[in-house]
Design a protein around this nucleic acid. Structure first.
Lengths: 231, 231
DNA sequence: TATTTTAGTGAACACTGTTCACTTTTCGAA
DNA sequence: TTCGAAAAGTGAACAGTGTTCACTAAAATA
């Protein structure tokens, strides 16, 4: 136990943190380039001139290490979107910017983003997670990202831009799904944008295009929902 | 080489196909339950009472085997959506059903769907894929799925339901992104639907809700795009 | 200075996908 | 039917993985 404030690090802990950071930096580099399969503990150890078992003095397992990479990435992502959501723009541009920022930050580090949503919970894990309350969820990074969207929808409704009949939480989930989907489609199927006959279109443009369509989906409808269009 | 029609299988090839199917069936079972990490060649061999090396007489590699599982899943998925897209319903319901069918088929086999979009192409692979033409793309299963959406958008525009100013290909990509995103969000973050204060909402309901919002995004807009909503 | 805690290592374990020389079985033609 | 070739299947081995653990060397503490 440290006797006084632990804020001032002893040389020992400073050295230790330095090694830890070196491990993380090398892991980050390898992971960004080759993804989870390209990051092996042994190659990582070789990269930083340590023995493989040394890494286990800093991280409990490879999964823990990866978790840290993913988490810090998602926090960067959250930070970017948070900043944009508080920017000084008119509502439409701001809302669109939230989506485009999210997608472009995600696609800038494809392996990180894909890995951040890679785990498929089992039945038991699912049951366990059901326990956590709304407040607990909102405290997690992903919960905070979600809250940004909920607030955005509510603001849009207050401004009369979004349909007041929509439920903010559901709408936020819809926006997230649409953004998430575009990001992953661009990551895993980057052919799509280029197959179109008019190759003047770039990736970034389509992201904005998609964002606008998403916004339009929440807008005040033209008239009572169509019931025509029968075959 | 076979002298006559190869349609009538010899006992040898029939036996061979039987073993091949047995391998695929066991692999399918293991993969559906535990995903890619839970499917090992050795455990698979044990499951069907063969030696690990025997499997390599039927599949060039584990990746090839997985490819076959993923492909056949995606073809089932495509088939489902294709059937729905040709069903006898009014346009709105049919379009919505395409999305909901896609999502629920995807989430019914989470590991399959996630794996079908798991590969992240490298620079070189990307350059290679850029070569393939629109016609080549449309011939692939994913291209066919995409084409269903393009046709759907064009039909909606012809019916006056969708905004004629939208480009069908871009709109189709937008729909796919939104559907893809919801499917993966439900697979990887199944907490989301349940955190809402009103727990009467079930998963399936939200899929339809989301599908409706997606449709609204393509609908004829209420009036010339809003320019208000300034902060 | 003596002792205890920490940092780091090398060898081992239990896995993995994959290959290859080898045996056994099956099949088609002489 | 017999003989040779092709196919089916195997066991051992290789190279790789994550992880553990007894062990040494160094640093921090008393």
């Amino acid at each position: 136990m440290d006797s006084d404030y632990t804020l001032e690090q002893t040389p020992a802990t400073r050295r230790r943190n330095k090694v830890r950071e070196a491990i993380l930096a090398a892991a980050e580099r390898m992971f960004a380039k080759e993804g989870e399969s390209g990051l092996s503990i042994r190659r990582l150890a070789e990269e930083i001139d340590y023995s493989p078992s040394a890494i286990y003095k800093y991280f409990g397992s490879k999964e823990e290490l990866l978790e840290e990479l993913k988490d810090s990435f998602f926090e960067r992502l959250l930070d970017q979107v948070d900043r944009v959501s508080a920017a000084n723009m008119n509502f439409h541009d701001r809302a669109r910017a939230c989506v485009t920022t999210y997608v472009s930050t995600a696609t800038a580090r494809p392996h990180h983003y894909a890995a951040a949503f890679s785990s498929i919970p089992t039945r038991e894990e699912l049951a366990a997670r059901r326990q956590l309350s709304w407040d607990d969820f909102i405290a997690t990074p992903k919960g905070q990202a979600f809250k940004i969207l909920v607030d955005l929808v509510e603001e849009g409704q207050a401004l009369g831009v979004f349909d007041p009949a929509l439920e903010p939480i559901k709408s936020a989930k819809s926006i997230w799904a649409s953004s998430h989907g575009l990001a992953l489609l661009m990551i895993h199927m980057p052919i799509l944008p280029d197959v179109q006959p008019c190759p003047t279109q770039t990736d970034g443009d389509f992201v904005a295009y998609h964002a606008d369509i998403v916004m339009r989906g929440l807008a005040v409808p033209a008239d009572p929902p169509h019931k025509n269009g029968t075959r």
